[in-house]
Computed example of a mutant assay.
Amino acid sequence: MAAAHEPLADSADDTPIPFRQAIEALRATRPRPEIEIEPTPAPRRLAPYAYALQASVTEPGADPEDEDAEPADGRLVLLHDPAGQDAWRGTFRVVTLVRAELEPEMGSDPLLPEVCWSWLTGALEARGVPYGEPSGTVTRAGSYFFGGLGDRQPTTQIEIRASWTPLEGPGGVPDAAAHLAAWCDLLGQVAGLPPAAAPDAAGGVVPLPQRRGPQAR
């Protein structure tokens, strides 16, 4: 992660122990070097307890001016309600947002939304993390340039909004680190990065599109 974090408050903190342990697992996770993660303010109205991270994928020297490029970014929120919520079918919930710009030819693929959703479920399955009640949307948007910007090539943006219930393990604590690792895999996929490590073939991860070329930036 981008910076070290202080430990959670001591036992006087009224935060439930399972949530405290899940947060510690998130804080201890170290993603691949191209992905930078840092804490961000969490939403207050979705659950009694929430913890949020924001992330960006950086490609050194990938910009036409040899500057660093950020082909994808996102946000992950871990929610906890000790009383549970009917829609979750559990006491924890992961809520995510991932955004990326793809090669223009990908934007015309009618199956793009289904493929993007399979990237998410495939990342979770490749990591072997148990989850339930997945839901979400995939939004595709195209940008076309005119006038003084007319020399730019069209671009296609994709946005994946999703949530799922991480199934709880011993002590009522989900494997938060594994869910974060799967989410980082998804970020790397939508950014067009090569796999950091060979995934389990049984996970069935869908092949990825190429990254944006300089002409599409």
Rank of each mutant, 00 (worst) to 15 (best):
residue 70 E to T: 12
residue 139 T to S: 14
residue 17 I to T: 14
residue 108 S to F: 09
residue 81 D to V: 08
residue 109 D to Y: 03
residue 84 G to Q: 07
residue 99 R to N: 14
residue 33 P to M: 01
residue 71 P to V: 04
residue 72 A to L: 04
residue 40 T to M: 12
residue 36 E to V: 12
residue 125 E to N: 13
residue 89 R to S: 15
residue 110 P to Y: 04
residue 24 E to C: 01
residue 99 R to V: 14
residue 118 S to G: 00
residue 87 A to I: 09
residue 34 E to G: 00
residue 30 R to V: 15
residue 31 P to D: 07
residue 119 W to F: 14
residue 24 E to K: 06
residue 20 R to P: 06
residue 35 I to L: 15
residue 49 Y to G: 00
residue 122 G to Y: 05
residue 71 P to K: 04
residue 32 R to V: 12
residue 57 V to K: 08
residue 135 S to T: 12
residue 4 A to D: 13
residue 31 P to I: 06
residue 120 L to N: 01
residue 80 H to R: 04
residue 39 P to C: 01
residue 23 I to T: 03
residue 32 R to N: 02
residue 73 D to G: 15
residue 129 V to H: 06
residue 99 R to M: 12
residue 71 P to I: 03
residue 65 E to A: 15
residue 94 V to P: 02
residue 82 P to C: 10
residue 53 L to T: 01
residue 39 P to E: 14
residue 111 L to S: 13
residue 140 R to E: 11
residue 118 S to N: 13
residue 21 Q to W: 01
residue 107 G to T: 04
residue 42 A to P: 05
residue 32 R to W: 00
residue 29 T to E: 14
residue 41 P to S: 08
residue 39 P to L: 06
residue 80 H to Y: 15
residue 95 V to K: 05
residue 118 S to V: 00
residue 22 A to D: 10
residue 122 G to A: 08
residue 38 E to F: 04
residue 77 V to P: 05
residue 39 P to M: 04
residue 12 A to K: 10
residue 106 M to F: 00
residue 52 A to H: 11
residue 27 R to M: 12
residue 127 R to G: 13
residue 55 A to K: 05
residue 131 Y to A: 02
residue 72 A to P: 10
residue 8 L to N: 12
residue 4 A to F: 08
residue 136 G to Q: 11
residue 127 R to L: 07
residue 133 E to W: 00
residue 5 H to W: 08
residue 40 T to F: 03
residue 70 E to R: 13
residue 56 S to Y: 03
residue 52 A to F: 03
residue 8 L to I: 04
residue 90 G to H: 06
residue 82 P to W: 07
residue 27 R to L: 15
residue 43 P to K: 06
residue 97 L to K: 07
residue 120 L to E: 01
residue 64 P to W: 09
residue 119 W to S: 00
residue 134 P to Y: 02
residue 46 L to Q: 15
residue 27 R to G: 02
residue 40 T to Q: 11
residue 112 L to V: 10
residue 133 E to D: 09
residue 123 A to W: 07
residue 58 T to E: 08
residue 35 I to A: 02
residue 66 D to I: 11
residue 15 T to R: 15
residue 111 L to E: 11
residue 69 A to D: 15
residue 114 E to C: 00
residue 77 V to H: 06
residue 46 L to F: 04
residue 45 R to S: 12
residue 67 E to R: 14
residue 19 F to V: 05
residue 31 P to C: 03
residue 64 P to H: 12
residue 8 L to V: 02
residue 109 D to G: 00
residue 8 L to K: 01
residue 35 I to M: 05
residue 49 Y to V: 05
residue 119 W to V: 02
residue 134 P to N: 05
residue 48 P to K: 07
residue 123 A to T: 03
residue 12 A to F: 09
residue 61 G to N: 13
